[in-house]
Nucleic acid binder design. Structure first.
Lengths: 399, 399
DNA sequence: TATACTTTGTTTATCCACTAGACAAACCAT
DNA sequence: ATGGTTTGTCTAGTGGATAAACAAAGTATA
């Protein structure tokens, strides 16, 4: 108890050093290659301080000297690089009908990628599959000082603050402690995140959101989930359950949703909504199978008028929810991701036109609306980054 | 530029001292009376460190020694108190038809209060009135080391990050720089806040929200505005325009709002909505004047069945929006404030029953739903507290 | 009442991290 | 070759935290 209080509250030289070291490392990560002198002038730290911190980071293999740079009229600087290969991170996105796993270096560069289509796996089948995927990724990993520094996993459901999966309806999971299961097997820190939160983080780190401090990532898949980056930080809510915007009422006179409420957003603007609407309009599946998003895309490519109308309709419904988001958060950026992002071609212009249409001029001024550039990898990249960052910050603390 | 970078980024002993001093002051503010030894054990700081910081705070008149406390088996401790009378803060809530101004000490205790009913004032009339109110409050203020340390003002409209009032439709204000106007006259720091944000902060500081880190304050007046405390901090959005939830669409097939959108929440659940609905149901004003909230309350007190039905209807509409808020933020606490809070007697039970009705069990678990306990003073107290806190933090930095 | 033990708060010596400035090494320009 | 620059290290000094000693003021017990 008292220990914990101390950790949280006291500020001493130790903290100063830790923060400054992190500052130096961040500078290098952001703007490498870079000399010690550059870091000093960028951060405002003294040259000597930077020198000693840099030397420690070199000893820890977190950065590298890449030889002399170009002179600006005097002695040539020694350029420093972030050693992105000091360790590797694994990010796994568990979808409803796929598992996407990536191996990244500490910078988030993908080294290896595995996409496996699955269907109706039992939980033990899933864990077996996860283990074999992790083993595979580990086996192709190049030798490095730290090896696998962490595993991040994104799931389509609610995750508690402690990392327990509370409810993932589409996986039929409830109160599942996947974290301990994997941590015990691999003895590596594991982070479990909601898929939308992971995607938001991925976009913040690697997508268009790098410079933005307030980002709303709208994950449009079978349902709709939202990940929130507010004040530079992921906002998770009191119990880690924020962003359930799929069940935001946008029509209180609408049909009843499986959640019990009426007129939820995802009844109008999700992948499922799109398919239902298409079926209703008499669009039939090609081969007697189920109608899929992929088929709809093909029909749209072919210029099918009815399909285009359906997409327009869904776009209109998306706008309603997005406008609510703008009024609620006044975000800097909204990013549309997950499956429905493949409709970018048809949705982009209508959305740009109508999103923020009735918002105040200032509200709208520099609002950016993007489609995910990371495609299906937002969530996997996000959780991988989480695990990597966690390693770096813990590593800096242990000294 | 470089200066600013330094301020933001570098961590040195100077920062450590500042933070520790703030930590000591906070301890005293929170749990006075308290000895030096108590502070040391509470914060984890060394006794010597606490001693020297306490002595500095004493010299600055921010704390007081209140004589010996009770012994616990050894030397009697010297108890310390926060010197709440070291300075005073002014908080002004500019409403559509009233101006509420308070003078508080640094702890937020109200020393003087002025409530003035106004109607359709021009901007220059308003500023004249503000000046005379401020002068009045200053004249009744007891002598103190620091005098008036700041002025906070809450307005029913959007406020930019720089403190400019962008748009307050009900006051007919647009792009108004009230801050500079008052700062120039009184040479005291002035903080301008949106009324809902101010209310949220007031509730966080002095209401039921003291211990909570995620609070949504719903200000139901003529319109609806929302103030957000997320991760312990006021979330203002990218341009300072978050919380415009009054214009959240809850029925996209509904009537057109003056904002241009359809089916906005405040068309169904604000004071104006209540009055309109009452008129529609044939409830007529007593004396040929306009129908007011006060009259409706009186009728409800008298048990008027139709009025009670109207209130129930508005309650139902409130629930829809509140459920959206829960799904969006997963807050720890929702506080209903402003004018409509007077309907607590009739709304409390129905709201408790239906808010979170369809939310996940975990979502709902420890969600608190409160009506404002500060009544009409939430916003004024909030801005006054803002000004006071600003003084304290700046004061600690200057050394 | 005398003595031993506690608790409080100050003081002292020490440690740690940052800073300023001196300095050597490496480079450019004339 | 010489003087001026830039880079990076080293040294002395500063500010603040800590630990431990200590004095002051109390309680408990014989």
């Amino acid at each position: 108890m008292e220990q914990k209080m101390k950790m949280i509250q006291t500020f001493n030289q130790h903290v100063v050093k830790k923060r400054n070291k992190a500052l130096v490392l961040d500078s290098i990560k952001e703007s490498a290659p870079l000399s010690r002198a550059d870091i000093a002038s960028q951060t405002g730290l003294n040259k000597g301080t930077v020198s000693s911190l840099v030397n420690e980071l070199l000893e820890e293999h977190l950065i590298l000297e890449s030889g002399p740079g170009v002179s600006s009229g005097g002695r040539r600087p020694v350029m420093l690089l972030f050693n992105q290969s000091a360790g590797y991170s694994i990010g796994i996105d568990i979808g409803v009908n796929y598992i996407l796993a990536i191996l990244t270096d500490l910078q988030g560069t993908i080294c290896e990628e595995k996409l496996i289509k699955v269907k109706n796996l039992t939980f033990s089948q899933t864990t077996e599959l996860l283990f074999s995927i992790i083993d595979d990724l580990k086996s192709v990993m190049p030798p490095s000082p730290y090896g696998v520094v962490g595993i991040g996993i994104g799931v389509p459901g609610t995750v508690s603050m402690t990392g327990e999966v509370l409810m993932a309806p589409n996986l039929h999971w409830k109160d599942i402690d996947l974290k301990s299961l994997i941590e015990e097997k691999y003895k590596i820190p594991v982070k479990i995140k909601n898929e939308a939160n992971a995607g938001a983080y991925g976009e913040k780190k690697f997508g268009a959101g790098k410079e933005c401090s307030d980002i709303v990532y709208v994950s449009c898949g079978i349902g709709i989930g939202v990940g929130l980056i507010l004040n530079e930080k992921l906002y998770k809510g009191h119990n880690g359950l924020s962003g359930e915007l799929g069940h935001m009422t946008i029509n209180f006179e609408g049909p009843v949703c499986k959640c019990g409420n009426k007129g939820c957003w995802e009844l109008y603007a999700s992948e499922q909504a799109l398919i239902q609407l298409a079926l209703k309009k008499g669009i039939t599946p090609e081969n007697g199978n189920e109608l899929t998003l992929e088929q709809i895309v093909r029909l749209a490519e072919a210029g099918d008028e009815e399909v285009l109308q359906v997409i327009e309709e869904v776009g209109k419904n998306l706008v309603t929810g997005l406008n609510n988001i703008i009024n609620t958060f006044n975000p800097e950026q909204i990013i549309l991701g997950n499956r429905l992002a493949v409709l970018q071609k048809w949705l982009k212009e209508p959305l740009k036109k109508h999103v923020g249409e009735y918002a105040l001029a200032t509200h709208k001024k520099d609002l950016q609306l993007h489609f995910s550039k990371l495609e299906k990898r937002s969530a996997a990249l996000g959780v991988a980054a989480f695990a990597a960052e966690n390693f770096l910050s813990v590593n800096l603390e242990e000294n």
